[in-house]
């Protein structure tokens, strides 16, 4: 990865790095409250790197959940990364095993959204640049969450505002992804399904179920519009 790659990556991920400062601080504070030492939070941010997941660990530890139930919950919370990793691999062919291990570890919602947009719209985007965005975001998360544990409970930040940083980012990323009418329909379906399944299941696996069903509907719809177009053009030729 050249200096140029790091700079290109930095330009695209800087707003994510900035948004991680309040989020990471809040997460560090929550984990400190739950009894995690500053060093352990740094290790956790390095090895787990999951915003919502780490907030959940703090919450579950403070209500006394067992380690195994916490680990299983975290698995379901982050199972959506299975879909993200599958969506990215087509742009990352022929790399070394080390590259895949490093890239996989740094897939989160924010780096996925940034990279998928770049890969689909920017012909200059490369796997190396994508990896730099991932690593820079990861770095910001580790430092911010670590600093959160040092600040501890001395600071009072509104959790509603902190959580909303991500919601606002995800809305903007969602708008970026709506590139056709089919995408818009599928987005609406996925949103409605996600709400319904969240209420039914009370678990973040609802995200995965909603995305899988809605993507399948999108797949069927886009195949159907293509066949319709083919029929129409065939009919057109016949009429002529």
């Amino acid at each position: 990865m050249s200096r140029k790659d790091w700079l290109a990556g930095f330009k695209k991920i800087v707003y994510v790095m900035l948004s991680y400062i309040p989020l990471g601080l809040a997460c560090g504070i929550a984990l400190d409250k739950a009894g995690f030492s500053p060093f352990s939070v740094m290790i956790m941010s390095l090895l787990v790197f999951a915003g919502a997941g780490q907030f959940m660990i703090a919450q579950l530890v403070s209500v006394g959940s067992s380690p195994i139930s916490i680990i299983v919950t975290i698995f379901f919370v982050n199972s959506r990364h299975l879909l993200m990793s599958s969506g990215l691999i087509q742009y990352l062919k022929g790399k070394s095993i080390g590259f895949y291990l490093l890239f996989a570890q740094t897939i989160v919602d924010e780096t996925f959204g940034t990279n998928i947009t770049q890969f689909t719209t920017n012909p200059d985007w490369t796997p190396s640049k994508a990896l730099t965005t991932n690593l820079l975001a990861h770095f910001s998360w580790i430092i911010s969450s670590f600093c959160g544990t040092l600040i501890g409970q001395n600071i009072n930040i509104s959790l509603t505002v902190v959580n909303y940083v991500l919601v606002a980012m995800f809305i903007a990323m969602l708008v970026e992804q709506v590139v056709s009418k089919v995408h818009l329909i599928v987005a609406i379906i996925s949103g409605i399904l996600a709400i319904i399944f969240k209420m039914l299941l009370q678990n973040n696996i609802s995200l995965v179920i909603a995305a899988v069903i809605a993507s399948t509907i999108g797949f069927i719809l886009s195949n159907k519009t293509q066949t319709d177009q083919k029929h129409n053009s065939l009919r057109g030729e016949h009429d002529n």
Partner: peptide
């Protein structure tokens, strides 16, 4: 990493970003 992804799976996966972010936002 060493396999071709079938075109139909690529097409299905092309809806994952929009569906995931919509699910994240609305839930």
């Amino acid at each position: 990493k060493n396999k071709e992804i079938p075109p139909s799976l690529t097409k299905w996966l092309s809806f994952i970003p929009v569906t995931i972010f919509s699910a994240l936002v609305f839930s």
